[in-house]
C-alpha cells in the first residue's frame, strides 16, 4: 500500500530555487521521495542543492531557467521529461526580487511590468508549458507561492501584494479548468524566514516586535521545517481532493479566509 504522504516515484519541478524558500521546499519534496528538478535564473544554488540531495541518496538535477522567458520554461519542462521521464508536481516559487515598499502613486509602469512579469506572466508561462505533462499521469499538482499580503493587501508594497493576489484568481480558475484532468491547483501563503527578512528585522527591531505579535505562534516559519513539509504534503496523495485553495502556512497570521 502506498503511504499517503509519500512522493516516491514522483517528479517535481521547482522554479525560483534560491537559498531560502525554494531550498526548503526542494529538500522536503526530495525527503518525501520525489526526484526534483531545481530551476533558477542562476545555477549556483540549484547546482549545490542538487549535489547535496544526490549525496543523500536523492535524485535531483539543476536547470537554468528565467521564468519570464516562455522558451526557457518550455525547455526546462522538456529537460525534466528527458531526465526523469515524467512530471507530476510543479511549484512556482519564483518571484520578483525588485519588490520594495513605495507609495502607489509613484509606481511607474515599467516597474509594474518588470515585477508582474516574474510573478503573473511567469505563472502563465509555466501553466502553459506544464499542462500536458501534468495531465499525462492523472495526478498532477500545481502549487503557486502567494502571500498573506495577496489576501489582505499591503499598504507598504502594492505591486507585490497585487501580483500575489492575482495569483489567487489564477489558481481558482485554473483549478476549475484542470480538474477533469486530475490536476489539482493550489497556492500557499507562507510566512517564511529568509536572509533578507532576518536582516531587515534585525535592523528594525520595532518592526519585528509588531509583526511577531501579529503571529499567534510568535515566529516566522522555517523554510526547511515549517513550509517545505507542508508543501510536500500538498503534493502528495493525501491532498488529492484539495484544489483551488490558498493555504496559509503562517503560524496563524492570516485567519480571515
Amino acid at each position: 500500500m502506498r503511504k499517503p504522504f509519500s512522493l516516491e516515484g514522483r517528479v517535481a519541478l521547482i522554479t525560483g530555487v534560491g537559498p531560502d524558500l525554494g531550498t526548503g521546499i526542494a529538500l522536503a519534496l526530495a525527503e518525501a521521495g520525489a526526484a526534483v528538478a531545481l530551476a533558477a535564473r542562476g545555477k549556483t544554488v540549484p547546482d549545490a542543492l542538487a549535489q547535496m540531495i544526490a549525496g543523500d541518496n536523492g535524485n535531483a538535477c539543476a536547470l537554468e531557467c528565467d521564468v519570464t522567458d516562455p522558451g526557457q520554461v518550455q525547455s526546462s519542462v522538456a529537460a525534466v521529461l528527458a531526465t526523469f521521464g515524467r512530471l507530476d508536481i510543479v511549484v512556482q516559487v519564483a518571484s520578483s526580487t525588485g519588490s520594495h515598499a513605495q507609495p502607489l502613486e509613484t509606481i511607474r509602469l515599467e516597474e509594474w511590468d518588470a515585477q508582474t512579469q516574474v510573478t503573473t506572466r511567469a505563472a502563465f508561462n509555466l501553466a502553459r508549458s506544464c499542462h500536458a505533462a501534468l495531465r499525462a499521469n492523472g495526478s498532477g499538482r500545481m502549487i503557486f507561492v502567494t502571500s498573506a499580503y495577496g489576501l489582505s493587501g499591503d499598504g507598504g508594497n502594492p505591486i507585490y501584494s497585487a501580483c500575489k493576489g492575482g495569483l489567487r484568481g489564477f489558481v481558482k480558475s485554473l483549478a476549475k479548468e484542470w480538474g477533469e484532468d486530475g490536476i489539482t491547483v493550489n497556492a500557499i501563503a507562507p510566512s517564511s524566514t529568509s536572509a533578507n527578512t532576518e536582516a531587515y528585522f534585525l535592523s528594525n527591531p520595532d518592526a519585528w516586535d509588531v509583526f511577531r505579535k501579529a503571529i499567534p505562534m510568535r515566529r516566522m516559519g522555517d523554510p526547511r521545517t515549517d513550509i517545505g513539509p507542508a508543501v510536500a504534503a500538498m503534493a502528495s496523495d493525501a491532498f488529492r481532493f484539495v484544489s483551488g485553495q490558498t493555504i496559509p502556512i503562517d503560524g496563524g497570521l492570516y485567519t480571515s479566509l
Binding site: Y149, G150, S152, S161, A162, G165, G166, L167
Partner: peptide, 9 residues
C-alpha cells in the same frame, strides 16, 4: 484579483 488586491493595498 490583481485589481482587487491593488484596491485593498
Amino acid at each position: 484579483e490583481t485589481q482587487r488586491t491593488l484596491v485593498k493595498s
